[in-house]
Simulated scan of single mutants.
Amino acid sequence: MEIESITLKMIRSPLKSPFHTHLETVYDREAIIVEARDKDGRTGYGETVPFSSPWYTEETIKTCYHMLEDFLIPMTLSGNWEHPNELSELWKGIRRNQMAKSGLEQAIWDLYAKQKEKYLGRLMGGKKQYAAAGVVIASNDRKEALRQIETFSAEGYKRYKVKISPSSDLSMLAAIRSVYPDLPLMADANSAYRLDDTVHLQKLDSFGLQMIEQPLGVDDIAEHSLLQKEIKTPVCLDESICSYHDAKSAIMLGSCQIINIKMARVGGWSQAVKIHDLCVQNGIPVWCGGMIEFGISRAHNVALASLEGFSIPGDLSSSSRYWEEDIIEPDITVRNGEVKVPDSPGIGFRINEKRLKELTVYRETFKAM
């Protein structure tokens, strides 16, 4: 597989409304769009999606750009490889930096699928025609959270995720359950608790949650195994699953009953599919997590969620959830709680070149020698 050039485009856009967690409030979103072009003019697209500051992972927009520019792109353009599956081995000397790797690998897989004239999801074994969609309620105000639920319920979302912390969890969940007793609801803690909070976390069992996501340390697996034995609510691991090995360790220890697979967090398509297959083999349900992405990353997520093991609705909200206008065409739209899986080659969506150009604040092209 020969690549003629790789272009990085730094983009920035305000969110339609702030995104609140106990760690950070996001008002503006940056991303790096990766474009891989072959000699016949076909272009594959990926999206590198860390945040501007290292509140979710240690990676940021600036560190990812550095890794792409100075290491991953030069290795890719000069390396001896023939198939996208070989990229993980090519890059094995670069420790972690999963989000930088993911954006570049996405672009190359998209290009490869276009060369094969196949939809990327089908190329990876996906069979679904529709992917079930969930939405994040990112507000620390109870009234605003209820307003968001009412708004999003009109689109029929099949799972609602609310951000929680020890200071507000009981009141927030009680307020939601008083109005929506049967809502398919989960709680995302973003590592807000300690193992010493086990008795407090046991109180959440009464709310009938589908799961509690990453209640303990951001890099913990062992203590989650102890917590899961003491609470009825299924534990879902997110931040601490950064590789196939992490997922295997968590399953061996009984640290969770559910795993959230974020392509960006685990390093791209190859690792995401390996983790999916491992979970299917071990009877662990998975769902596709999101990162407040623009449309290119969201399109890759739709393709990933088309795999059969994704039995829980993922973070696949409509483009309009965050953006006045997205960088893909058509917009991703949730209808009756589902996103239609496309069938066009590659990621299945066109690029909105006009909008992409409007949001681009910097670009740089690297050519094969």
Rank of each mutant, 00 (worst) to 15 (best):
D219Q: 14
D220V: 09
D220K: 04
D220Q: 10
I221G: 11
I221H: 02
A222W: 09
A222H: 10
A222R: 13
A222D: 14
E223G: 04
E223Y: 13
H224W: 05
S225P: 15
L226I: 14
L226Y: 15
L226P: 12
L227F: 06
L227H: 04
L227G: 11
L227T: 14
K229R: 15
K229W: 15
I231P: 05
I231H: 09
I231S: 01
I231M: 05
K232Q: 15
T233C: 14
V235S: 02
C236V: 05
C236Y: 07
S240I: 01
S240Y: 10
S240D: 13
S240L: 09
S243E: 03
Y244S: 11
Y244N: 06
H245L: 14
D246W: 00
D246N: 12
D246M: 03
D246Y: 03
A247M: 06
A247D: 06
S249V: 15
A250Q: 03
A250G: 05
A250F: 01
A250I: 14
I251F: 12
M252H: 07
S255R: 03
C256S: 08
C256V: 12
Q257K: 12
I258E: 02
I258M: 05
I259T: 05
I259E: 03
N260I: 00
N260V: 00
N260C: 02
K262R: 14
M263E: 12
M263F: 02
M263D: 11
A264H: 05
A264Q: 14
A264I: 02
V266F: 04
V266W: 01
G267N: 02
G268M: 02
G268I: 05
S270N: 06
S270A: 15
A272H: 04
A272V: 01
A272M: 03
V273N: 02
K274Y: 15
K274Q: 13
I275C: 03
I275V: 10
I275D: 06
H276S: 13
L278C: 06
L278Q: 00
L278D: 09
C279P: 10
V280G: 01
Q281D: 13
Q281N: 09
Q281M: 13
N282Y: 15
N282C: 14
I284K: 00
I284H: 02
P285M: 01
W287P: 07
C288P: 03
G289Y: 11
G289V: 00
G289Q: 09
G290A: 09
G290H: 06
I292T: 11
I292A: 10
I292F: 04
F294N: 08
G295E: 13
I296A: 07
I296P: 07
I296M: 13
I296V: 14
S297H: 12
R298F: 13
R298S: 15
R298N: 14
A299G: 08
A299H: 06
H300C: 14
N301Y: 06
V302M: 07
V302G: 02
A303Q: 02
L304C: 06
L304Q: 10
